[in-house]
Nucleic acid binder design. Sequence first.
DNA 1: TCCATTATGTACTTTTAAGTACAGAACTTA
DNA 2: TAAGTTCTGTACTTAAAAGTACATAATGGA
Lengths: 191, 191
Amino acid sequence: MARPRSFDPDDVLEIARQVFWQKGFQAASLDEITAASGIAKPSLYAAFGDKHALFLRVLDRYHDGILGWAERTLAQPGPAREAIRQWLTGFIPYCSGEKGQRGCLSINSATDGSLDQAALRKSIERYNRRLEELLCTRLRADRAQFKKGFDPDITAHTVMVVHAGLMALAHQTPDSKQVKAVIDQVMSLLA
Amino acid sequence: MARPRSFDPDDVLEIARQVFWQKGFQAASLDEITAASGIAKPSLYAAFGDKHALFLRVLDRYHDGILGWAERTLAQPGPAREAIRQWLTGFIPYCSGEKGQRGCLSINSATDGSLDQAALRKSIERYNRRLEELLCTRLRADRAQFKKGFDPDITAHTVMVVHAGLMALAHQTPDSKQVKAVIDQVMSLLA
DNA sequence: TCCATTATGTACTTTTAAGTACAGAACTTA
DNA sequence: TAAGTTCTGTACTTAAAAGTACATAATGGA
């Protein structure tokens, strides 16, 4: 029994994500987001709260997207190594060439010193924990495939480090072949 | 034949580095730097130019420091693997525990979307190129120690990726033992 | 049809931080 | 010691961006 919203919040989050991803949290202004989305500021504030809260929503959405895809990819049948290789390979477009310029929104946010807000840190930590958990679970499940002495926990963390490194170096837009070669080399650890 | 400077530019760069490292480029204000250094803004501007130019000076100094240390460490006698392991191990204080919070100034800057300035990009690229070159040179020199089929170029890049990943995940202040375990596992690739 | 309620858009306030004008201080050299 | 030059500090201007007040529009229900 009131005037209905004239926009889909999801659409706005999508646009806000693009702006934040392109510019970073600090450099992205709400004016840019209102301009890009056509939504006036008071509506934004009413729907999402202040800039930090909006960013948190955007980041959580981003995390959910990647986690969903990781869950699907890592649940694949076949050797764990191939599932993980495929997961990492899926990032190649985002850490080389044109799309690579932006890197990973989560890592960009984590390395942004201005974002030491508790809520942000928690979101990123939860995301990383969950991702590592997925890797770990898969490696443990397929433990029999590996050599004696293989440590799934450490290996999962190593894969996390490699993933973070690829995304951090994405801003230099490396050659995708080079990225692929690194993935191949690291995958030789899963034996 | 004029009034001399009342401060050592190097001291100011050191203080500016701390502020930029702590807060990030955007969030660090010149007022904080003037407060921390005791130097008034007009003196800062006269000595270093605007905020971007000051940051560039700070970053170049930072790069030089790390490169100098890398040159010394990687020139060590003995197996290449041990030299590189020692090099990576040296970063442990900076990617775990208390100091780790800040991560790496260069990587933080690279992932900061607001810094797509040409000069910044070039500085970071040159730094990464030089670092990879040092690794590469060392691995090539010790080629005989490795198995047939060992590729020093790809391996150097893999080490770069691992280094970047460790520094990117530094903000989560992981346990130093975990970091060490990852380094050990990756070093097994140098065989 | 009128009312209560919630969204919208314009235009504002406020804050913060970058950058600078200018007067005066400190030094060198003639 | 005076002139010329460059540095320093106070206080300012300016710009940008976060957040909001308020009048108005759109809806569901009585």
